[in-house]
Amino acid sequence: MSPSLFSPEGLAGVIFLILIGVTLTGAVIATCTKRLIRSVTGLAICFVGVAGLYYFLNSPFVAMMELLIYVGAVCVTIAFAIMLAEPNEARVARKISPLSGSLATICGGAMAYALGYAAVNGQWMAPAIKINDGSVKEMGMSLLTTYSMVFEVVSIVLLLAIIGALVLAKAGRDKQC
């Protein structure tokens, strides 16, 4: 049964379709353009779409975090890297060998097909009951109790990442001292 286009549910459906479009367009831009900076833009668009999907999956918190971390931090970082490493993009027009292009298409297509096939044909069992509603409060509770390991690991990973990035940047910059 399809809801009317102008009911709130129908509008939500339209927006969902738009979000899917945004995600896939972003993915296409991110992988198929020649200039890296456009790829990053595509990535950002894709993440905006993904954040919308998360919102539909009833977790606005993760959606916001997706925007904050991916668009605001990861994309900016990558854009920075591009600026530092390839400021003039002189050698953009490097030939991509047709072999790698077709290989990539085949691999990617096969992966997507396999995963999609598994997804559609899998027998997914809905749970009988939900023990909580997945709100931020519950999430915070379980993050600090059941899954506190994740919390700790994330903090260590981030710390290491910061130190590692500093060390690497320093080493690249100043070899002699």
């Binding site: 530092l84 400021p87 910059r173 100043d174 070899k175 002699q176 001292c177």
Partner: peptide
């Protein structure tokens, strides 16, 4: 100044 001393690895622009 120590960093500026060795310029062959430096990323400079005009």
């Amino acid at each position: 100044s120590t960093l500026l001393g060795q310029s062959q690895l430096q990323e400079t622009f005009e």
